[in-house]
Nucleic acid binder design. Sequence first.
DNA 1: CGTATCCTCAAACGATCGTTTGATTCCTGA
DNA 2: TCAGGAATCAAACGATCGTTTGAGGATACG
Lengths: 207, 207
Amino acid sequence: MPVTSASMPTKERILGAAEELFARHGFEGASLRQLTSAAGVNLAAVNYHFGSKDRLIEEVFRRRLDQLNGRRMAALQKITGEPDATIEDVLAAFIVPALELSHDGNGSLFMRVLARAFAEHDDTLRKFLSDNYGHVMRQFTAEFARLLPNLSKEELYWRVDLVTGALTHAMSGFGMIQRKSDVPEHRHREQTAEHLIRFAAAGLKSP
Amino acid sequence: MPVTSASMPTKERILGAAEELFARHGFEGASLRQLTSAAGVNLAAVNYHFGSKDRLIEEVFRRRLDQLNGRRMAALQKITGEPDATIEDVLAAFIVPALELSHDGNGSLFMRVLARAFAEHDDTLRKFLSDNYGHVMRQFTAEFARLLPNLSKEELYWRVDLVTGALTHAMSGFGMIQRKSDVPEHRHREQTAEHLIRFAAAGLKSP
DNA sequence: CGTATCCTCAAACGATCGTTTGATTCCTGA
DNA sequence: TCAGGAATCAAACGATCGTTTGAGGATACG
């Protein structure tokens, strides 16, 4: 199934509408009829281009996570060499790419989709995410382990999990992450990153 | 302990099955036919006893939150008088009742339902929770503000929100909260509380 | 031009959804 | 004992779900 230039707009429009409606109403709550109507395409287009609703869901994740986790891994790579890297550096490698995504186009909607994926305990979806992107979390956890040698493995998993929960919660839009009108966007993003990193670092390093 | 039992009244059996299926498949994902079948009651029983599916959802929350937030407020009340209360004390008042619920009957399933409610941005459900239980979070936030006078209001909301996210995430069962077989349950609950409180306190008090 | 391929479209498929109905059974109070 | 409300039941309601179909339009290449 070659991707022609004519088919690309339709696929992109479906993915965009899917991201928004999945964020707003959940995977089961958003119907293909709502979705294709919002995208301005025919109902059958989803099954034609993606095969099924489940495969569409996977593509929504793939489109954002390939980029997001690519940037995360690239940022982490620069640190692993440095002998004087800090917890804050590793956290920045994890958080900053997500904040860049949040302020780029409809990326913030995707963070809400991601939060839903955590809340869903759907095995198929969890396996898909684990298979394709589990290595990223493992890599970051390994780096945290290197920088926190005093922590037992159990204690480390605990804290990484708590940090993950806090960040997912915050970045999916529950939090106070709202830019004041007199603060330029890139400055706001820096401030948000500082907040999250300071909080998470304190939790990780707690005695 | 089974979620439902033939000896229980119909309303209780429905509520138990609803809690389990809402936790597992979400509010839209769990159908009344699955639900009533699991509860061993007739399909029409939900609409007869609760009026509608939405009202059933509210009752699932009310049954647990009345008890949970009652205990939280009682615990907080004991602290507000004490002049030498600590952040850790306030966090304990918030966390320990939730952990007691998690280890009591099917309370842990309810924490997953609660996590879903956070992920859903459904306005009706959020308004219901805010109207009925919003005063609890406001009371705790006020107490944090008293014990952290250096923090700006904005900074405080930030950190309280991050703590909420971490705890919701952890207590809904993603985390490593699994008791080892050689640790008695009440001791495991104490250890879990210590973990959560230490992490959250460090985040709240971070410089 | 003709034809092969990609794509779109309206329509329909069977399944399942939340809800309602009306009859029937159960149980209690007088 | 028996009347009457409470509770349960099978069945059906209209609506909506994800998916499939087959015809027709669009486009590129010989």
